[in-house]
Amino acid sequence: MNTTSKTLWPLVAAVGLGVSFVGYCVYFDRKRRNAPDFSEKLKAKRRKQKQTVDISQSHVNTSDPDEMRRYFLEQIQQGEDCLSRGDLNNGVDHLAKAVAVCSQPQNLMALFQQTLPPELFQEIIIRLPRIAQTMNSSSMGGGAIITEPDLE
């Protein structure tokens, strides 16, 4: 055997394995997609995932400080992400949820007043009572959720 065939053999084997793997994936993906109940199962799975996400986002145990802290930080991050993508409606909702569970809402509102455009800050003020009431009615514990921002 010469040196060319010694270096070519592993390359041919690797290419053959790669092509076989891709063929295997394509075959089973086609088989899965052509199954008669595929779309129904997929829709049911997505519906269940959406319900799980909705439930986990709307119910926060206000008696657990660690969960409240996690929820607060999550809402701030999601609000910032939405605003950076231009999704102002969801961004304002997430920021209002963060204010609703914040231990020092006056300080957070003062920060928002300084950093956000006036129309977004005004939207947070408008939505805050509704969001706080929604969170109060869906929360399990009796934590310190505010209902009105104190801006003075």
Rank of each mutant, 00 (worst) to 15 (best):
2 N>P: 06
3 T>A: 04
4 T>P: 04
5 S>G: 01
6 K>R: 12
7 T>Q: 01
9 W>T: 13
11 L>Y: 10
11 L>N: 02
14 A>K: 11
15 V>M: 09
15 V>K: 04
17 L>R: 11
17 L>Y: 11
22 V>P: 00
22 V>E: 09
24 Y>P: 00
25 C>V: 15
25 C>N: 10
28 F>N: 14
31 K>P: 07
35 A>G: 04
36 P>G: 00
36 P>D: 08
37 D>K: 06
39 S>P: 08
39 S>G: 06
39 S>W: 13
39 S>Q: 13
40 E>I: 10
42 L>Q: 14
47 R>F: 15
48 K>N: 12
51 Q>W: 01
52 T>A: 13
52 T>H: 08
52 T>G: 03
52 T>Y: 07
53 V>T: 09
56 S>N: 13
59 H>Y: 10
59 H>R: 14
62 T>A: 05
63 S>F: 13
63 S>T: 14
64 D>I: 08
65 P>W: 01
66 D>T: 10
66 D>R: 13
67 E>Y: 03
67 E>C: 05
67 E>T: 13
67 E>K: 14
67 E>Q: 14
67 E>I: 06
69 R>P: 02
69 R>N: 11
70 R>P: 04
71 Y>D: 05
72 F>R: 03
72 F>S: 07
72 F>C: 06
73 L>T: 00
73 L>I: 02
76 I>N: 01
80 E>L: 03
82 C>M: 09
83 L>E: 05
83 L>V: 04
83 L>T: 03
87 D>I: 04
87 D>H: 05
89 N>S: 11
91 G>V: 05
93 D>Q: 13
94 H>P: 02
96 A>I: 03
98 A>G: 04
99 V>N: 10
100 A>D: 04
101 V>K: 01
102 C>W: 02
102 C>Q: 02
103 S>W: 05
103 S>C: 02
103 S>D: 08
104 Q>W: 12
104 Q>V: 14
106 Q>N: 14
108 L>V: 04
108 L>Q: 02
112 F>Y: 14
112 F>H: 03
113 Q>T: 05
114 Q>I: 13
115 T>L: 10
115 T>M: 07
116 L>T: 01
116 L>F: 11
116 L>W: 10
116 L>C: 06
116 L>D: 06
118 P>R: 08
119 E>R: 11
119 E>G: 01
120 L>T: 02
120 L>M: 09
120 L>G: 00
122 Q>L: 11
124 I>E: 06
125 I>P: 06
127 R>T: 07
127 R>V: 05
127 R>G: 01
128 L>Y: 09
130 R>A: 13
130 R>S: 06
131 I>G: 05
136 N>L: 12
136 N>Q: 12
137 S>K: 15
138 S>M: 02
139 S>G: 03
139 S>F: 00
141 G>V: 11
141 G>N: 09
143 G>N: 10
143 G>P: 11
143 G>A: 07
143 G>F: 09
145 I>T: 12
145 I>W: 03
146 I>T: 14
146 I>S: 12
146 I>N: 07
148 E>R: 14
149 P>F: 08
149 P>D: 00
152 E>P: 15
